[in-house]
Simulated assay, not measured.
Amino acid sequence: MSDEDQIQQGQCLCGAVQVTLSGGMGLTMQCHCSECQTVMGGGPAYITMVDRSAVTMSGEVGRYTVKGNSGGDVTRCFCPVCGTPTHSELEKYPDKYVLKVGIFAPQSAAAPAIAIWTGSAPDWHPIPEGIPCFVQRPVPRA
């Protein structure tokens, strides 16, 4: 089965928020920004950025919006029943979702391919050897 044919089902801890992803996961990343550390309870967030058109969600999500380092809004979404972080919406990328890979079965996500915002990571955060690390975020391609 090719990535284009993959359909993955995910959900929050209590099942109130359901997520279907078509076309496979994008690049899996570790995010060590201070906001992700707070939301995730101290560790990095494991995330993937995907096209919104590839995602179907059901159930109500809570939202909390802050200004990101880019100056644009970052809306963090979560289940209002169990509190599971589900995804983020970035003003800078309105056609994308940043999904938390933990809402999918553990075997669904590839190991992180890059680590971002490592300048905010404490020394004890595990970062896999050999992956590209960025003190902030990667420079967007022109």
Score class of each variant (00 low, 15 high):
residue 24 G to T: 07
residue 24 G to M: 08
residue 44 P to R: 09
residue 114 I to D: 00
residue 127 I to S: 13
residue 92 K to W: 11
residue 122 P to K: 14
residue 105 A to F: 01
residue 57 M to P: 00
residue 35 E to R: 07
residue 133 C to S: 14
residue 74 V to I: 12
residue 75 T to E: 03
residue 141 R to T: 06
residue 23 G to A: 04
residue 14 C to Q: 14
residue 22 S to M: 05
residue 102 G to D: 02
residue 68 G to H: 06
residue 73 D to I: 01
residue 37 Q to I: 01
residue 16 A to Y: 02
residue 113 A to Q: 12
residue 87 H to M: 04
residue 55 V to D: 10
residue 135 V to I: 02
residue 73 D to Y: 04
residue 73 D to N: 15
residue 89 E to W: 09
residue 92 K to Y: 13
residue 50 V to G: 10
residue 130 G to I: 10
residue 86 T to V: 05
residue 49 M to H: 01
residue 19 V to F: 14
residue 94 P to Y: 06
residue 41 G to H: 05
residue 45 A to H: 08
residue 78 F to I: 00
residue 87 H to E: 02
residue 1 M to C: 15
residue 66 V to Q: 11
residue 64 Y to G: 07
residue 128 P to D: 14
residue 69 N to Q: 12
residue 43 G to L: 08
residue 2 S to E: 15
residue 20 T to Q: 08
residue 119 G to H: 06
residue 46 Y to F: 11
residue 67 K to I: 11
residue 65 T to Q: 12
residue 44 P to S: 15
residue 51 D to Q: 13
residue 108 S to C: 10
residue 3 D to G: 10
residue 20 T to P: 05
residue 95 D to M: 00
residue 126 P to G: 13
residue 119 G to E: 14
residue 95 D to V: 00
residue 98 V to E: 09
residue 88 S to W: 13
residue 58 S to Y: 07
residue 115 A to W: 02
residue 71 G to L: 11
residue 81 V to W: 02
residue 130 G to L: 11
residue 44 P to F: 15
residue 92 K to G: 06
residue 102 G to K: 10
residue 36 C to V: 01
residue 133 C to Q: 15
residue 67 K to M: 13
residue 28 T to P: 04
residue 127 I to E: 06
residue 66 V to S: 12
residue 92 K to T: 03
residue 94 P to F: 00
residue 10 G to D: 07
residue 127 I to Q: 06
residue 112 P to C: 12
residue 106 P to W: 13
residue 7 I to P: 02
residue 23 G to D: 11
residue 4 E to M: 14
residue 106 P to C: 14
residue 54 A to F: 03
residue 42 G to L: 14
residue 135 V to G: 06
residue 21 L to D: 03
residue 66 V to P: 01
residue 86 T to H: 10
residue 37 Q to Y: 05
residue 46 Y to V: 11
residue 14 C to T: 04
residue 130 G to C: 10
residue 79 C to R: 04
residue 118 T to A: 09
residue 27 L to P: 02
residue 58 S to D: 13
residue 123 D to W: 03
residue 116 I to C: 03
residue 83 G to P: 06
residue 51 D to L: 10
residue 104 F to I: 00
residue 81 V to G: 00
residue 125 H to I: 08
residue 64 Y to N: 04
residue 136 Q to I: 00
residue 142 A to E: 14
residue 83 G to S: 10
residue 102 G to A: 03
residue 103 I to Q: 01
residue 107 Q to F: 05
residue 106 P to T: 02
residue 58 S to I: 05
residue 25 M to Y: 09
residue 75 T to Q: 04
residue 78 F to V: 00
residue 80 P to F: 13
residue 71 G to W: 01
residue 119 G to N: 11
residue 11 Q to K: 15
residue 50 V to Q: 08
residue 66 V to A: 04
residue 42 G to T: 07
residue 53 S to N: 04
residue 107 Q to M: 04
residue 97 Y to W: 06
residue 34 S to R: 01
residue 14 C to A: 11
residue 118 T to N: 12
residue 99 L to W: 07
residue 92 K to E: 05
residue 94 P to Q: 11
residue 67 K to C: 01
residue 91 E to L: 01
residue 78 F to Y: 09
residue 104 F to S: 04
residue 113 A to W: 05
residue 47 I to G: 02
residue 73 D to F: 03
residue 120 S to A: 10
residue 32 H to M: 03
residue 42 G to M: 13
residue 63 R to C: 13
residue 28 T to A: 11
residue 110 A to F: 09
residue 138 P to N: 15
residue 126 P to D: 12
residue 13 L to C: 04
residue 61 V to T: 14
residue 42 G to I: 02
residue 49 M to R: 12
residue 108 S to I: 06
residue 39 V to D: 00
residue 44 P to Y: 13
residue 86 T to K: 07
residue 114 I to L: 05
